[in-house]
Amino acid sequence: MFTPLQYEFFVRALIVATLVGGLCGLIGVYVVLRRMSYIGHGLSHAIFGGAVASYVLSVNFFLGASVWGFVSALLINLATRKRSISADAAIGIVTTSSFALGVALISRFRSFTRSFDAALFGNILGITQADVIAIAAVALLAAAALFVGYKYLLFTTFEPEVARFYGVPAGWTDAGFSLLLAAVIVVSLQVLGVTMIAAAIVIPPVVARLLTDEFARMLLLSVVIGALCGLGGLYMSFYLDISSGASVVLFSAAVFLIALSYTTLRSRLGSARWRRRSAASGKLEPFH
């Protein structure tokens, strides 16, 4: 277990994977509870277009991709307000168009020399010092924003329409959340890749939801599970020699399966115990 720690690149990658896992777990709670799971998948594809455009236009990657992702998220919000367009259709239109634009730019400007594989499937070994700083900065920003906006975000996530009637600035809250989500996806791209981010955002909160009915505990559990999946996934990547994005997702999927089996078993055992107790006492007890 300690063998890979002698390599400096692995230690750096371990810190980054753990941070990104925890960060995706944190933001993922709101994504899952807002029933926006598909948006993580869509936005990462949209941001791919922004990343390529930033490269072609010689704009800073983080800035260009974040602005692109934010605009895409706002466009999706705008499109879904039209009742005739459902959220999944809006995500499909906006993000696939953006992804297609990225592919078109690559084929038009042959000067694009960055690795496609790294962008699509993640390459944690290619992480630079600037990437680490960006990830840490977004993690701090996300933790601070979600702490300060805790009450507002909880209400807008629970009942988006009703929250406005109680004085919650729902429009600003949603815009802020979209910006934060775009930033999280941008800094996670290098580690997880376009195709794997959605799972890192969705799986930890889903596992946490299986284990608790309490919102604050779900947030905490999701961060811990996300971080552990990042850590475990990176070890798996090292020993099995597979891409970091894929291994983090596979590790997370295994954790999900264990949690699902555990909660199913717990519920079945609970029912059986209740039936045995009822039979022994000779009467049915009130069910709570």
């Binding site: 509870l33 909880l154 996530t157 629970f158 929250a163 109680y166 919650v168 939801r209 608790t212 309490e214």
Partner: peptide, 19 residues
Amino acid sequence: IDWNFPVTVEQVVTMGRVR
């Protein structure tokens, strides 16, 4: 309302004083 949302009764009631 999504009644499976992970909130307690007290949390829902205090939402009325969010401002």
